[in-house]
Design a protein around this nucleic acid. Structure first.
Lengths: 193, 193
DNA sequence: TACTGCATGTAATCGGTTACATGATTGC
DNA sequence: GCAATCATGTAACCGATTACATGCAGTA
């Protein structure tokens, strides 16, 4: 149940609407956690019901309303509690690796396509992560600037450093996957020769 | 929806009961996919209803029955179809990395404990994967022997090679995580000095 | 006799996905 | 006027988790 904490963490930077939060999950590189918008809107309502966030309603046209959410003191406490709490290691559930375990059932050409797609996907991801790391280091991302603006100067280094560390980790992961796919392609060659 | 395919793949080696299948998911290194036993039993019943597997019932004591499942021709076809089909890349959802993004909220000692636990977990995993790779290469695992026994001799090399490649990939992943945790520990030192 | 491991389930709940629906605002 | 994007939801469904329940078999 980390979606709520991802939301609390994003709101710590400042008030945001459900739509803006969904964008952070969908489009930006800030997606160590993914969530579709219906889940975000429902979770925000739940967090509001539990008093962890509050909503400022503004009229939008004649019938609709826009709801900007902000952290409550309880929400901030919950965020801090969660960060300190140890995570139970996650269970592995990887469809691509599961499938690769049984590649002998597929044609070599098909196996090649699998590995090529795996490589292409992670090359794309790698570029995203690297670009994001560069932006964080230059303190260019909007979210980071909002966080730094209301944090004590002495914390700035750590705030930036931990984020950089995470996205460098994601980049390293992508490189590991690219190498795995390349060794896979070599293996297909070896098996068909 | 890969649980069903994991089950079909395991049954390809030969008939098994729900309990034996659950053990493969729980205890053995064969867990690129994790599933708890209630999910396995229900999925097996569903697969039976769809005619992809069949169950042989044997009495167990006076009231209970043991059900050994085996692949039907339809199940085998579905397994082959799935292996050839391209996977959509999976969405990232990583609680440990999400939390690490906000480590500035925690005490340095707590952050150290997080990284140490991360490293310890993946060191354990690494040993599992390496042991499993060695067993596969020696063709020692029971499941592999059952598969090889009813496969054509000319396919043996590929059957072993793809499994080895997957578990070597898992080992590589574990090494990447260990290094990430170690760089994390260095970072805490640097930030607190 | 009691404990452990073998063995099979049901039920409640929850998190996540997909399809569908509606309206507002901005720019061509 | 129309399309694209902004913005907010509901509902149905499905996969995964957790708690609970039951009975068999071997052994200390």
């Amino acid at each position: 149940m980390s979606l709520r904490h991802a939301l609390l963490a994003l709101l710590e930077a400042g008030p945001m609407t459900g739509y803006e939060l969904a964008k952070q999950f969908d489009q930006s590189a800030d997606r160590v956690w993914h969530a579709p918008h219906p889940q975000i809107y429902t979770e925000l309502r739940k967090l509001e019901g539990e008093g962890l966030v509050a909503a400022d309603e503004q009229p939008r046209g004649t019938k609709a309303v826009k709801r900007a959410y902000r952290l409550n003191p309880d929400g901030e406490r919950e965020l801090r509690r969660w960060v300190s709490e140890l995570e139970a290691p996650q269970q592995v559930r990887d469809a691509a690796y599961l499938k690769a375990t049984y590649f002998e059932y597929a044609e070599p050409a098909t196996v090649r396509r699998h590995f090529e797609r795996h490589r292409a996907h992670h090359e794309e991801q790698l570029q995203r992560w690297e670009r994001h790391v560069a932006q964080l280091q230059a303190r260019e991302t909007e979210l980071l600037q909002r966080r730094l603006a209301h944090a004590s100067e002495s914390d700035h280094e750590a705030i930036v450093a931990y984020k950089v560390h995470v996205y460098q980790g994601m980049a390293e992961r992508a490189r590991t996957e690219i190498e795995w796919a390349e060794r896979g392609l070599d293996l297909v060659d070896k098996l068909t020769s």
